[in-house]
């Protein structure tokens, strides 16, 4: 498949960007027009969380897809997918802080007061410390911070390709922690966390197979190699 750089840059990328933004836009619209459930705050928290996982899966899928299809321009979408994972992850964290922590505070001196800030920090901190699934979720979000900070071309240059690559393997941890966080919070129906777990596991297994060279590795990488060179 031959698609010129110009098409990727001026057509595909803007389209993918807008498409990636659409879940957030939809949530805002649905929230304002009363199109969420009877518990809209819980919907906002759940949906931003699920979209974080989806974008993490997309980020992790780029390299395997690129290898399997041989369509190299895919790499140009990896940063965007990763940044959207951070975007939705941050929205998720903020909804939690506001709808779950802030809304549960006492306001002895009114809402606009220093005690509010202090109590909020204490409430978030204690929850992260006390509840394992929150600890894991918060850690997952934290791992995305250095990745986002080093996502610019300038940072790649400054770090050097090798170190940059090494640092960005941290996203594997983000994926695993994200799935674990989802797994630990559901009440009984683990089918969805299980699905995300399977997807993340498959995407990580692809890398493991490539690296360690066991079993099917030969077949998969030869196939991939042939496709990439034939192009």
């Amino acid at each position: 498949m031959r698609i010129s750089d110009r098409v990727v840059r001026f057509v595909l990328k803007p389209v993918v960007f807008l498409a990636s933004l659409s879940p957030a836009a939809w949530l805002v619209w649905a929230g304002l027009t009363g199109n969420l459930s009877a518990n809209p705050l819980s919907d906002l928290t759940n949906e931003t969380g699920v979209w974080t996982l989806r974008f993490l899966c997309a980020t992790l899928a780029i390299t395997p897809l690129r290898r399997l299809t041989g369509w190299n321009p895919l790499i140009k979408f990896r940063r965007m997918a990763g940044l959207f994972a951070f975007f939705y992850g941050t929205l998720h964290f903020l909804t939690y802080v506001i709808a779950d922590r802030f809304a549960g505070l006492d306001f002895p001196n009114g809402i606009v007061a220093w005690t509010t800030v202090r109590n909020l920090a204490k409430s978030v901190g204690e929850d992260i410390y006390k509840r394992p699934y929150i600890t894991v979720g918060f850690t997952a979000w934290t791992t995305m911070v250095p990745l986002t900070a080093t996502s610019t071309a300038g940072m790649i240059r400054r770090l050097g390709g090798k170190q940059w690559n090494q640092l960005h393997r941290l996203v594997y941890a983000t994926g695993c922690l994200g799935v674990l966080h989802y797994w630990w919070l559901v009440k009984a129906d683990i089918r969805r966390p299980l699905t995300y777990g399977a997807v993340v596991a498959a995407l990580l297994a692809f890398r493991l197979i490539k690296r360690t060279g066991v079993g099917i590795r030969g077949a998969v990488s030869r196939l991939a190699w042939r496709r990439t060179t034939v192009e």
Binding site: L36, E47, C57
Partner: peptide
């Protein structure tokens, strides 16, 4: 297909 429905399949919203 199963994975895709699970991951992308509409949830609640």
């Amino acid at each position: 297909a199963a994975a895709a429905t699970g991951v992308l399949g509409s949830e609640a919203l």
